[in-house]
Write a protein that binds this DNA or RNA. Structure first.
Lengths: 348, 348
DNA sequence: AGCGTGACAGCAAGCGCTTTCTATCTAGTG
DNA sequence: CACTAGATAGAAAGCGCTTGCTGTCACGCT
């Protein structure tokens, strides 16, 4: 019923081998023969059988991209950039590859299961985006899985994620600590002394690093941090809204709120406004990531820009073997402080 | 080197057939045997070879999701919902499926090529999201491709996209026309008579339908539309910014601007502010989609909410055969007008 | 004229799994 | 107790493609 290589071969009066070679183009085939084959392919409307081809050749053209939340532009932007470089149709890369975007939802089990699924598909490469989960057993399981993938010839690249030791994985890590520190230094420079911090979920590297940067800046400035000034939440707007109200309840004298990321910062802004506070006159707000909407907030958000698209593109190229891995397999990608309207000197 | 089914069989002292059956669980296997096999799988760290399995069984567990722009939350939200229902790891669905999110970038060729790639992989189902491109040759090619996919047993679902006649594709269509109309009626009700419209790219069904709704409302109100009041652009913020400046240049007396979607509306707001105009006192602004950030705009955006997540979830279930297709294979999904702060009565 | 040499094309052996058909064994039945 | 139905397990035939190896020619060289 379905057209196979053999059918094409018969029609073109050549052997299946020849058809295969024409299609893969890695073996000399006379121009006239090639033409005949291509015509047959066209006439029969032949479509290669991917699984069969993958099985015989022991390789596949699937590339996995793991993201925490595909609905979040932070991941969407990286995924998009990675995918463009992977060279799906229209990409500059030669062979047409299928990018498989997998949504882990931040769940450790899913992360692992997806990796197994990709391993099962004999994926050509896998790119993991976003922070890692800091759970000892899970980290061990991940490392082991990544090692196996690497051993099986799958190229593994971590994009915006800390290195995975004892693994062949290439890591392009965001300097969350440095960015967090710079951001808080900016606030301190403006004269703020009482800063609330809305952190992301615990046991996430991203959360921890940004928070560490923040605390390092405080410490360097000789400020004793009040434990009440830190609240943990999710990486979304809602969480930012609630956390801000909580922060305000705990200490109404705060003059600045630093958020785990831009979405959280937006929620913080909303909460402040709803509490009758002006930004930045009464309270300054800062975000992280510099997602596209941040500049449109009113006032526009002071934040740390992470080169998401660039990092994704680079990760994609490395995954495809079109760019050399950084020395040591690790590269630290710095963020850039974007000072905008949401931060100003403290009131009074 | 790599562990195969046969290795597991040898270790468990059973035939490969039995191992396969244990793994697929669709054939009776004695409990003790099953256990022995599972132990062997575990000890050998065996991972099924996806391509081989797909080849032999003539089916695969890949499900394609086509989106225009994965970095755009509009698509991200739908993709996320679809994927959750597809039942990747952790999903309620039984078999573990791999969702393949394909980024077409709005390019017709890529759309087609991705479909071929999915066809090649013998995808179990394909969900196409977002509006279609209104180019006769391309539409024909798409229909033909979708027909072939359908004939090959791949379930095809259109989510937020007009029906594809002569195809087995199930369509969950957004009522863009109705939403557009309602939105403009709201503005007219407030007393606006000179409305600018920032449309999306031409030759897109979404663009056309929303615009048609807008015009229908104007016509019903007996307003002659000035051709200068419509500008076409892309579906992004930047485009909204520029288009608004252009609109203002063409007719500074406009009292309202209707945007093709929320991102464009945000750009419009920025342009208005930069032009020294207040929203909504001087000019009202309306968006479309009600993406999460819309409520955080200042003032918050009046827009038409599209149940993106619900539609995606439903599309996912239909694609998996877990929900019946709507009668006639077509369902119209209505939007809901969300009146918020960005629209008000015209000045004066 | 004889022959080495490319340039192509074909043969055939798998790749690792699924599944039909068949064989075996146990337990239930008259 | 002979016999049959039901429950498992195995043998083996592919699934559609790739690729190493083996021809077969047509040239051009000595």
């Amino acid at each position: 019923m379905t057209v196979t290589l053999a059918d094409v071969a018969a029609r073109a009066q050549v052997s299946p081998a020849t058809v295969s070679r024409v299609l893969n183009g890695n073996y000399p085939v006379a121009a006239t023969t090639r033409e005949r084959v291509l015509r047959a392919v066209d006439e029969l409307d032949y479509v290669l059988n991917g699984p069969a081809s993958a099985l015989a050749a022991a390789t596949s053209d699937l590339v996995g991209i793991l993201v925490n939340d595909i609905a979040d532009p932070f991941f969407g932007i990286m995924a998009s950039a990675i995918q463009a470089e992977i060279g799906g149709p229209g990409g500059r890369a030669g062979g047409e590859r299928l990018a498989v975007v997998c949504n882990t939802g931040g769940s450790p089990e899913r992360e692992l299961t997806y990796l197994t699924l990709l391993q099962r598909q004999r994926a050509a490469a896998v790119v993991l985006t976003g922070g890692a989960i800091e759970d000892e057993p899970h980290a061990t399981a991940m490392a082991s899985k990544l090692r196996k993938l690497g051993d099986a010839g799958t190229r593994v690249v971590l994009c915006g994620r800390p290195p995975a030791p004892d693994t062949r994985a290439i890591a392009l890590t965001f300097d969350n600590r440095g960015g967090g520190r710079e951001l808080t230094e900016h606030l301190l420079g403006l004269g703020h002394r009482r800063l609330g911090y809305i952190a992301g979920p615990e046991e996430r590297t991203t959360t921890r690093h940004r928070l560490e940067g923040h605390r390092a800046a405080l410490e360097a400035a000789g400020i004793d941090e009040d434990p009440r000034w830190t609240v943990h939440g999710r990486y979304d707007r809602r969480s930012g809204y609630e956390a801000t109200l909580e922060l305000l309840r705990r200490d109404p004298s705060l003059t600045a709120v630093v958020a785990a990321n831009d979405s959280v910062a937006l929620g913080a802004c909303a909460a402040l406004r709803d509490s009758g506070l002006r930004i930045p006159d009464d309270v300054s707000v800062a975000g992280f990531d510099d997602l596209p909407f941040s500049i449109d907030a009113v006032p526009s958000l002071t934040t740390v820009r992470l080169p998401l698209a660039e990092a994704g593109a680079r990760a994609g190229r490395i995954a495809m073997g079109r760019e050399e891995a950084p020395p040591g397999g690790i590269a630290m990608i710095r963020g850039e402080l974007m000072v905008r309207g949401s931060t100003g000197g403290p009131r009074g």
